[in-house]
């Protein structure tokens, strides 16, 4: 008796947890393959006709292929900002971890502020306007770099602590210049945390809604999340297309998650542990 009860309780709570976390995704998928009239009922009935492909085409073609443009823009922003992020934050984390200087305290406070404080949006818009980067992809990329530097630096710094300093010494004796020590000896050894950084930050930046909303308004600059937000008001009567759009937005992180599960988990928990 005493052995079966925990099993039953555990089983039930598991089933409940599974349902709670799976049902919404099932719901998304179901509406996305229905016809317009069926989807408007918003229930769990299976569709009479599976319109996966038709709905997909309809969403892609909507507003003159706006979704394709959005994917292109979001991808561009993500790739560029993550590339810059990785290089710059690795450099900062490296020197912060390796060298004692009075700038370390400054850098540490800056990282902490960056992790905690929200950006001052309107002054940032003012500043971007004055340097001609408002509503530009370049501006957006640099903003993403600025806002996500702290987290990436934190990840790198703690990982660099595990790289033996003797390697730096050996490279120094071998005649390596400081930048050669970093790029030829240390950086290749950071691969695991670099992968983590790339994956976690890509998802964060790809999913970012707030910053493009403020800094990248305008039709020609739409991002995936903004498109989805705009479709919400446009498709109040076409739930099938709205949910097809949600489905499409959900797929990239799903794919990344399938391939990089381990690195994501490592990054999320490492970032959580205070540096």
């Amino acid at each position: 008796m005493r052995r079966t009860r925990p099993v039953v309780v555990g089983g039930i709570s598991l089933a409940v947890a599974a349902i709670i976390f799976i049902v919404p995704f099932f719901f998304i998928f179901l509406q996305a393959v229905k016809s317009r009239s069926e989807a408007s009922r918003l229930n769990f009935d299976l569709p009479k006709e599976w319109l996966l492909w038709d709905n997909f085409l309809a969403v892609v073609e909507a507003r003159n292929y706006q979704l394709l443009l959005a994917y292109f823009n979001s991808t561009l922003i993500t790739v560029f900002s993550v590339t810059i992020l990785v290089v710059l934050s690795a450099m900062v984390g490296y020197v912060m971890q390796r060298r004692r200087s009075r700038w370390n305290g400054v850098a540490q406070v800056a990282v902490l502020i960056g992790l905690m404080m929200p950006p001052a949006v309107v002054p940032t818009i003012g500043l971007l306007q004055s340097i001609g980067l408002f509503k530009t992809m370049t501006g957006m990329v640099l903003i993403q770099v600025a806002y996500n530097l702290s987290f990436s630096t934190l990840l790198y710094r703690s990982f660099i602590g595990t790289i033996p300093r003797d390697l730096d010494g050996a490279a120094l004796i071998d005649g390596a210049k400081p930048w050669q020590i970093f790029f030829r000896v240390v950086m290749p050894l950071l691969k695991p945390v670099t992968v983590t950084n790339i994956v976690v930050q890509s998802i964060a930046i790809f999913n970012d809604f707030t910053n493009p909303l403020y800094y990248l308004p305008g039709k020609e600059n739409v991002t995936v999340q903004l498109t989805l937000y705009n479709f919400q008001s446009m498709y109040t009567s076409q739930y099938n297309l709205l949910f097809m759009n949600i489905l499409l937005v959900t797929i990239p992180p799903l794919i990344v998650f399938i391939f990089f599960n381990r690195q994501i988990v490592a990054g999320m928990t490492a970032g959580g542990v205070k540096g």
Partner: peptide, 11 residues
């Protein structure tokens, strides 16, 4: 955690 907040919100 990894899914678009907007997508979740609408759903």
């Amino acid at each position: 955690v990894l899914v678009s907040t907007i997508g979740i919100g609408i759903t």
